[in-house]
Design a binder for these strands. Structure first.
Lengths: 219, 219
DNA sequence: GAATTTCAGAGAGCACCGCTCTTGTTTTGT
DNA sequence: ACAAAACAAGAGCGGTGCTCTCTGAAATTC
C-alpha cells in the first residue's frame, strides 16, 4: 500500500504533465512559445490554477533547462560508453542539437532576458559534458608528450581551475587550456550550424565539418 | 536649397530617433526590451503612430541587426588597420562584445523566435569580419608550408566554397577549413564568456584566454 | 488660389501574455 | 465531526503587437 493520498498522486501527475507540455512547447516554438496560460488551457484549467504547481514562469524554465542539460549529457555518456574519444563526444553533442535544436538553444544560446538560472539547480547537470571532455583530454595527454605551445599565464586559468576544484577535479594547465579550446570550438560550430550563421546548404556535411574542426585541433 | 519638404525632414528625424531609441533599449534590456509601444511613449505619441515609420517590430529588429553587424565590423577594421593578425581580429571582436553585450547577443546569439532576417539586408554586413579573417588566413598560409592535417573531403566544404564565391572570394580548402576553425573557436569563446557559461570570475582574464585559444590553433 | 490627394497622428479595440487576489469547494489530518 | 490545508474559478491589472477608422494638416495638382 502506498500511503500517498489521491491528491498527492494527482499533484505529481499534473506536475509531470506541465513539464511535458513545456518541453513540447520548447520543441515547437522555442522558449518564447512556453506560455503558462497556454499550458493551463491545455490542462483544461483556468490560467491562475497553474500557479498552484509552478511558482512562476521562471521556475518552469529552470526545470526545462535542467532537464535539457541532463538529456544531452545522458546522450553523450551513452555515445562515450561505446567509444571514448573527443570526436565521439563532439559528434554526439552535434547529433543531439540536430534532434532538439530549441532545447540546444535553451542551454547553449543567449541567456533568457530577466532570468538567471539558479546555479545550485543547474551547475551540476550543466557541467557534466565539459567534465567528461576534460577527463578525455587528460587521459590522452600523455600520448603526445608535453605540449610545445606557449600557455597563457597561470593567472588567466586560475578562475577555471577554481571552478573545476569546486566540482572535485584537478587538471594541469595544459589540459585545461586544451579542454577550453576544444569546448569553445565545438560549441561554436554547433551554434553556427544551428543558428544558420554559415547560410543554408550545410545540412549534409555537419558531421564532416565537426570532424575537420576537431582533427585540426590535434585530437 | 534642399528641395526636401518639412514633412520629409521630420520623417527622417523621427526614423533616426526610433532606431536610436531601439539601440538604447537593446543595450539596456536586450532584444526583449525593444517595445514599439514604449518607443511611442518616449516619442510622446500614441502607439499606433509608430507604425507610420516602421512596418512592424521585425522591421525594426532588422535595422538594429544590420547596424550592429556594421558597427562591430567597423571596429574590427579599425583594429586591423593598425596591425593585421588573427589575434588582433579576435581580440577586437571580444572587446566589442564586452562593450555591447546585448548587441553581440543580437547578432551572434540565438536567432529571434518567429523572425527571419532578410538575407539581402544582412548577409553583406554580417559576413564582413569572416571575410577579413579568411584573407588573413590566406595571407599567412604560405608562411608555414602546406598543412599536414587531413582535410575533410572537398564535398563537405562545397557549400562554404559556394557561399564565398557568391561574395566574390575564392580560397583553398586548407584556408577555408582553418578559417572556419578559428571562427567557431573565437565566436564560441566570446559566447561562453558573454553568456556566463564558464561561471563568474573571468572578467579580468578574457583577453588572455582568447590569446591562448588562438595561439593553440597555430596562428 | 482652390481643390484634391497624401499623410501623420489619435483613439478604440482585439487577442495575447504574466501574475495577484478573493471566493467558494473539496480533500485531508485530527 | 470539524478545522485546516489544498485546489480551482473568476475577475482584474498592466503589459505586448497590431489593425481599423477617423480627423486635421500638409503637400501636390489643376
Amino acid at each position: 500500500m502506498t500511503d500517498t493520498t489521491p491528491r498527492q498522486r494527482a499533484r505529481l501527475e499534473t506536475e509531470a504533465q506541465i513539464t511535458a507540455i513545456g518541453n513540447r512547447m520548447v520543441d515547437e516554438d522555442g522558449i518564447e512559445g512556453v506560455s503558462l496560460r497556454a499550458i493551463a488551457r491545455e490542462l483544461g484549467v483556468v490560467s491562475s490554477a497553474v500557479y498552484r504547481y509552478v511558482r512562476n514562469r521562471d521556475e518552469l524554465l529552470t526545470i526545462l533547462i535542467r532537464d535539457a542539460f541532463d538529456q544531452i549529457a545522458d546522450f553523450v555518456d551513452e555515445a562515450l560508453a561505446k567509444e571514448r574519444s573527443v570526436a565521439v563526444l563532439a559528434l554526439a553533442m552535434l547529433e543531439w542539437s540536430r534532434a532538439h535544436p530549441n532545447r540546444w538553444a535553451l542551454i547553449y544560446g543567449t541567456p533568457i532576458a530577466d532570468y538567471e538560472a539558479p546555479r545550485e539547480e543547474t551547475v551540476v547537470p550543466g557541467t557534466r559534458i565539459m567534465i567528461a571532455l576534460a577527463r578525455l583530454v587528460a587521459d590522452s595527454a600523455g600520448d603526445e608528450g608535453p605540449t610545445p605551445e606557449p600557455l597563457p599565464s597561470a593567472a588567466a586559468l586560475q578562475p577555471l581551475r577554481e571552478g573545476l576544484a569546486e566540482l572535485g577535479l584537478e587538471h594541469e594547465d595544459a589540459v585545461i587550456m586544451s579542454t577550453v579550446t576544444i569546448w569553445v570550438a565545438a560549441i561554436g560550430l554547433i551554434n553556427a550550424l544551428r543558428f544558420g550563421q554559415f547560410g543554408p546548404g550545410l545540412d549534409g556535411v555537419e558531421d564532416e565539418l565537426m570532424r575537420g574542426v576537431i582533427s585540426s585541433l590535434g585530437e
